[in-house]
Each structure stands twice: as C-alpha cells, then as structure tokens.
Amino acid sequence: MAEEKNMDPEAWVDRYGDYLYRYAFLRLGDHAAAEDVVQETFLAGLSSRSKYSGRSSEKTWLTGILKHKIGDQIRKRIREPIPTDIPALEEQLFNEKGRWKIKLPRWPANPRALLKRKEFRDILTFCLSLLPPRSAAVFSLREMDGLETEEICNNLSISPTNCMVILHRVRLRLRNCLELRWFAPNAKGKS
C-alpha cells in the first residue's frame, strides 16, 4: 500500500486532466459532458484508491475508470431517439437516380501530415462533435475503441441492421463535414 500514501488526488488534475479530458471529448463530442466524466473519474479514483494495485501506471488506472464512466454516459444516450435528419443529407448528396450530384474531389495523398496542423485537428474534432450523440457513441466504440460491430450492437441493444445504418450515416456525414470544412477547394478552414 506504499503507492496509496504517495497518491495525491489533487495533483491528478494537473497531471492527467487534459489527457483524460481529450480522451473523453473525442468519444463524447461534447465539452460539458467530457468535463463531467473527468470529474466523476477523479472522484471515483479518490474513493477507490485503496483498491489501486500499483501494477499499472496511475494514468492507465484512471483511464480505465474513465472508460467505465464514458460507457455509462453512452448507455444513457442510447435512450435518445434515432435522429431523422440524416436521410435529408442523403437527399442533398444524391439525385433521384441515386447518383452523386457533385463529383467528389480528390483528397491529398498524405493526410497524416495534416494532423500536425492545429486547424485541421480542430476541424476533425468539430465534425465529430456535430454527430448526434447516439451515433457518435456507436461510431467511437467502433473506430476509437476498436470494438467489433456485433459486440457494440449487443451491448447497446441495437439491432445489427440499425447499427450498420448508424455507422453508414456517420461516415457519410463525417466525410461531408471534412470536405466542406477542409478538403473542398473553397473550404474556409485552411486559411
């Protein structure tokens, strides 16, 4: 229990606060919700610190707690109705024959380099934050936590068909947002 004595919960805020906050923000797409789960994580860490074995780093341990808190948030959101605004996006993108109305422009060959630019990272997180909460949850479990689709659907009690529809619409939406805000020749974000 030597670790327990060395633990300084208030120092956690400075040491891991930003990291945990970003971790949560990316997954929840909402600043206020991200702050809330981080605070809950610290408080849960405080009351369970006697259980901390010291085998993993403090950061890993706190991240583990945070994951649970995010899971709780996501389960709450699942009760929200399925948004109906996205079929409208499909109407905007495709004509009545089901063809793209506008030819998709080419994206640069090495998008990884983009991540070094703060303006681009801001747009990526902004586009993620525009997703409806429930869809954002399914998408982040799939793409950020790398869970299998089947597992996600089962845990969230969403039918496999709906899960696929949600992921498809998120991808359509996210691509469109990135294009409008960044990749399109006249996008504003780059300047």
């Binding site: 990316l26 994206w107 998008p111 983009l114 991540l115 793409e143």
Partner: peptide
C-alpha cells in the same frame, strides 16, 4: 483515410 486519421489522431 478518415479511419486512419482518427487512429493516428488518438
């Protein structure tokens, strides 16, 4: 590309 961007971003 989006999938890669998100992984690398993380």
């Amino acid at each position: 590309t989006i999938r890669n961007l998100i992984h690398n971003y993380l």
